[in-house]
Design a protein around this nucleic acid. Sequence first.
DNA 1: CAACGGATCAGCT
DNA 2: GCTGATCCGTTGG
Length: 200
Amino acid sequence: MADVRFEPLSRRRLPIDTIALAKFLIGKTLVRDFGGALAAGRIVETEAYLADDPAAHGFNGVTNRNRSMFLSRGYSYVYRIYGMWHCVNVSGGREHEGAAVLVRALEPIAGLDIMHARRNVANVRDLARGPGRLCEALGIDCDLNGVDMCAEGPLWLAGGAPVVEIGESVRIGITKAADRVLRFYQRGSPFVSGPAGLRE
DNA sequence: CAACGGATCAGCT
DNA sequence: GCTGATCCGTTGG
């Protein structure tokens, strides 16, 4: 029987609106199960990628890579970036919509020894501050693409603190639609990625 | 602290 | 061929 703190969120609790989902996920928990050993972190930073959004991988329609973005909300979309890293999203919107929320940073809360074993950094702060780093810390790769994150399995979403102060900014590292304010973060958290000006 | 280059490859043009 | 939802070590102010 799993720790009650990590009970999966039910799909009907996930907002259908993708911007609302990106904000909703701040403060929730991302849980990774390595066959019995758990690692988990509190989500402190997200970005929304919308259906009519040139920066979103689903903008030009379904491809083999982005297929899981078009599932109903609450499934993982994992892809490889810059040859050596992975990024994990939570699919958003209605089925076939092609929206997603990128999980950009975590505050580690469980299984820190597991994360340290996977990432060669001294500080807890550097374990999962950034989308590539958090995937490395939690052992997330393309094998975990398309999993149901509203049920216990290798990767799922659980509850968290109900209220946090949420900051907003433009998204990081993109060139298309770079002026849209679709990044959300827990204001003031040292576990948020990006320059200091984008954490306040 | 900011800027820059290297690592490394799937997906597209 | 080129680009990219990144990270890290090094260099310079």
